[in-house]
Amino acid sequence: MTWPAEIQARAEAIVARYPEPRSAVMPLLYLAMRQEGSLTLDGMRQVAGYTGLTSVQVESVASFYSMYKRESVGDYIVSVCTSISCHLLGGEEVLGAVADEAGVPSGKTGADGLFSVESVECIGACGGAPAVQVNYELVEGVTSESGRRLCRWLADDRPQVVTSDHMQAEFGGMRSFEWGPDESEGATGPVPAFGPLGTSGQPS
């Protein structure tokens, strides 16, 4: 299978950003994941084609990093931090509550493809522990109760775009620091929302 022309153009632009094509592997893996919701064998083969690697070399790189998911994930990946600061302030309880509310055990994806729930290592939000990310968009100061509400909101509203600012206002508590101006952009799916990857969007 080949990618649509628009995606191919984007892939070529990504390759052009680097002195050597191999450097484009990581952004291209995000791009590939974006196409099919997870990193498929075909996706890895495509990336190999752009970077002059063999498929297994691409898989080797991809499988090294936690954020490239080789199994299909839900529309919303809910990541709960359980590293030391969050651990001290109840990260594991939040994880339990979220998993329960989403109906998906940690490390798994629900059968309906709505949620993936995972426990993650420190996400750099220790000052607002316990911290949670939805599709890598951050919420700080989450409690078991607000974590449940967060899941219910996702299930009920099915937002196309999730933004940190909205979630923080609705479900967050203590923050690591003042966040500054509202960020209107957010994630449009379970791939980190970053401009050149075409994964970010604005809520309608």
Binding site: Y65, I123, E137, E185, P192, F194, G195
Partner: peptide
């Protein structure tokens, strides 16, 4: 880091 899309967006902008 990949878990920092928001900082990355701001830096990119």
């Amino acid at each position: 880091r990949g878990e920092y899309p928001r900082p990355a967006r701001r830096v990119q902008r």
